[in-house]
C-alpha cells in the first residue's frame, strides 16, 4: 500500500529527511516517531504529495506520487494536526465538497453515519467558524474518511479532541486498519502509538534510527529489553555524545 524508497528531502543545504525507506501493508499501522525537528512532518508531507522529495520514491496504492499524483491522492487521506477548513461552508457542505472531489456517488448516504461517528450530527448545518477546536479536528477527520481511503496518513490526529473523541478516534483508526487500510501515524502520544501501531519507525535528524515491531527493535538491541515505550523512545532518540575534539 505504501512503499517508500530512499526518500530524501533538502531545504537548501539542510537535509530534513535523509534516505528513509519503509513499507506499510494493508491492515498495518506504522508509528512514525521522533523528537521535534526529526523530519516526521516533512516525511508525511512527502507521502501526501504536498511537497516533492528531493530524491527517492513514494508509492501509494501502486501509484508513484510523483508520476501519478492524482491516482495516489485518490487513494489516500492526509489528516494534519491543524485542521484546514473553509469558513463559508457548513459541516455537511464540507463533506459534499469532498464527495464531489473524490467522486463519492453515495455521499449523502455516507454523511449521516460519518457525522454520527464523529458526533457532529447536531452541527451539520453550522459554519466551520462556529465550531470548537476539537469539532474542527473531528470535521477534518470526517473529510479524510469520507471517500474510504485505502491509505491513511495521520499527523497528531488527536490534537484538540476530548477524551471521548480520542477514544472514538482510536477505535476509528483500528477499524479502518482492520478493514484493510494502511496507516501511518505520527504522534508524540507514545501510549497511543503503543496501543495502535503494529510497527514503529523511529527517526532522528532525518534518519531512521530503528524500525520494526517493538519486539524486533528490542531483539536487535538487547540493552533495551524491559524498557517502557517512553524509555525506549528516549534511548533510541538520545543524542550521541560529541566526539572529543569535535
Amino acid at each position: 500500500m505504501i512503499r517508500v524508497d530512499q526518500l530524501t528531502r533538502h531545504y537548501g543545504d539542510f537535509r530534513a529527511v535523509d534516505g528513509l525507506s519503509f513499507a506499510v501493508g494493508p491492515g498495518e499501522v506504522m508509528g512514525l516517531v521522533g523528537p521535534n525537528g526529526a523530519g516526521k512532518t516533512t516525511t508525511l508531507r512527502c507521502l501526501a504529495g504536498i511537497i516533492a522529495p528531493s530524491s527517492g520514491t513514494v508509492v501509494i496504492a501502486e501509484h508513484d506520487i510523483q508520476r501519478d499524483p492524482i491516482g495516489a491522492k485518490r487513494a489516500l487521506a492526509f489528516i494534519p494536526d491543524e485542521p484546514h477548513l473553509f469558513e463559508h461552508l457548513t459541516v455537511e457542505e464540507h463533506l459534499r465538497f469532498i464527495g464531489r472531489l473524490y467522486g463519492v456517488a453515495d455521499v449523502e448516504a455516507r454523511i449521516g453515519p460519518l457525522l454520527d461517528e464523529m458526533e457532529l450530527t447536531e452541527k451539520r448545518r453550522v459554519l466551520s467558524t462556529e465550531l470548537s477546536r476539537g469539532m474542527k479536528q473531528k470535521l477534518a477527520i470526517a473529510c479524510g474518511l469520507l471517500h474510504d481511503p485505502s491509505v491513511l496518513i495521520l499527523d497528531e490526529p488527536l490534537t484538540g479532541l476530548d477524551p471521548g473523541g480520542m477514544r472514538r478516534m482510536r477505535a476509528t483508526i483500528l477499524a479502518r486498519a482492520r478493514a484493510g487500510a494502511a496507516v501511518v501515524l505520527s504522534s508524540h502520544l507514545l501510549t497511543l502509538v503503543e496501543e495502535l501501531c503494529t510497527s514503529l519507525f523511529v527517526v532522528r535528524r532525518g534518519r531512521c534510527v530503528a524500525s520494526g515491531t517493538v519486539a524486533e527493535i528490542v531483539a536487535s538491541r538487547p540493552g533495551l529489553a524491559g524498557l517502557s515505550i517512553e524509555e525506549l523512545f528516549m534511548a533510541l532518540t538520545a543524542e550521541e555524545p560529541a566526539a572529543p575534539g569535535a
Binding site: E93, R96, R100, L101, Y102, G103, V107, V126, L127, T129
Partner: peptide, 20 residues
C-alpha cells in the same frame, strides 16, 4: 465575515471534480 449559512447552492456528487 460569513455569519449565516441560510443560502446554499446544490452540488451534484459526481461529475468533473474541479467543479467542486
Amino acid at each position: 465575515m460569513v455569519r449565516n449559512a441560510s443560502r446554499s447552492i446544490p452540488l451534484r456528487p459526481t461529475g468533473r471534480p474541479a467543479v467542486a
